[in-house]
Amino acid sequence: MTERVAEVGRGISLAYEEFGTGEALVLVAGLGQQMHSWPTPFCEGLAERGHRVIRFDNRDEGGSTHLGFRPPGMGAILRRRWSPEQYDLTDMAADTVGLLDVLDLADAHLVGASMGGMIAQTVAALHPGRVRTLTSIMSTTGARRAGRPALSTWLLMAGRPGRTREAAQDRAVRMFRHIGSHGYPFDEAWVRELAGQGWDRDPSSAGVARQLGAIVRSGDRTRLLASVTAPTLVIHGDRDRMVHPTGGVATARAIDGARLETIPGMGHDLPRGAWPRLLDLIDSHATQRSTDATA
């Protein structure tokens, strides 16, 4: 496993890593999350099941291109007043397709979490020939009444980012104690490790606001999702305080033939205790659909 950088077009470079061999399975990270938000043992678990696993940093995170324009403040986001340079989810979807191009992949299984689910959904809608299967985890459609964060979550998100490595770790612990999977043990050491790794790779916090701007600017994508033809699996926890479970329900309803799997006790993270179920769901969805396509 070696980190590489791909020039995906429009002045954007994406840092990525690969595990295993087989049909490509691309993992798309969420808001403010780097590629390692898909933990290495989790990726290895998918690779052991026969997949070529690719994880990457979205634009404005980690080792990928950081845009230089001033990030929107919360007031600008709420009023939907954007810089001319503000991108949206279609731009981030184009980044993902550009990565497929660089890797010479005609298509891939796409798995996205949270904002990553929104990006994967958008790829499936706008570039249907590039998506073998779609798995959307703890995500939503952008509809105003679906998948809304709890007020307490908004208040935590509005807090100032950490200015030091330790402060960033403390903030991550506070956030994931709140939005994480209350039906599973909380692993503070693991959260601190991931947050520290993120700080070491990229201490900037400006990209989070620009990515949040992309989500809000994209608005309600329900009609767009009606055009998705890829076999779709929607996974959501019943304890999610970041994206309310109604977001998963709305996503499954918006995509014809989509199947919704609810994981009891799971919140807005990937708890170790849920890994066996998550790995089985992702693997079986990709494997079964591939088998059906060649039958």
Rank of each mutant, 00 (worst) to 15 (best):
L151F: 10
R144W: 05
S136K: 03
S152G: 15
S204E: 10
I119L: 09
L233Y: 05
S139Y: 00
W154D: 04
A230N: 06
S136H: 04
H178W: 15
T232F: 00
L155R: 14
R174A: 14
Q197M: 15
V123W: 05
P149E: 11
S139H: 01
T232L: 00
R192Y: 13
M157A: 15
R165S: 02
I179M: 12
G129K: 11
S139T: 14
V216G: 04
L151M: 14
Q197D: 10
L103H: 06
G183L: 11
A230T: 08
M115W: 02
T229E: 14
I137K: 00
A195C: 08
D170S: 09
A120V: 09
P149D: 12
L105V: 09
P128T: 11
G198W: 00
A150G: 07
R144P: 10
F186R: 11
V228Y: 01
T229C: 07
V111R: 01
R130N: 11
I137A: 01
R165Y: 02
A209M: 14
W199H: 07
G147A: 13
Q211W: 03
Q169D: 01
R192S: 11
A195R: 01
A167H: 07
G183Y: 12
Q121I: 09
D104S: 14
V102H: 11
G213T: 00
A150R: 13
G142Q: 08
P128F: 05
M115E: 07
L194N: 06
F186L: 12
S181D: 05
G162H: 06
A146L: 07
V102C: 04
V173A: 10
H109A: 07
G207S: 09
W154G: 07
Q197N: 12
R174G: 01
V123L: 09
A168W: 04
S205V: 08
L225M: 15
H182W: 13
M157Y: 04
A125T: 08
A206N: 10
P203S: 09
M115V: 12
E193P: 02
R192P: 10
L194Y: 03
L212D: 01
A167R: 12
L233C: 08
V228A: 04
T122R: 13
G116E: 08
L110Y: 05
S114G: 12
G219N: 04
V131D: 00
L134V: 02
V208C: 00
T122Q: 15
R223F: 00
G207Y: 02
L110P: 00
E166G: 01
T133D: 03
R174L: 14
Q211T: 08
A230F: 02
D170E: 15
D187M: 10
S218F: 03
T153V: 10
S152I: 00
M138F: 07
L233Q: 03
G219K: 01
I235E: 01
Q211A: 08
R163N: 09
D107N: 14
S152Y: 01
A172T: 05
R165A: 10
H178D: 04
A168C: 05
Q197G: 15
E188Q: 12
R192F: 13
W190L: 13
T229R: 14
L151N: 06
A106S: 14
P231R: 15
M175R: 03
G142K: 04
A108F: 10
F176W: 13
A143D: 13
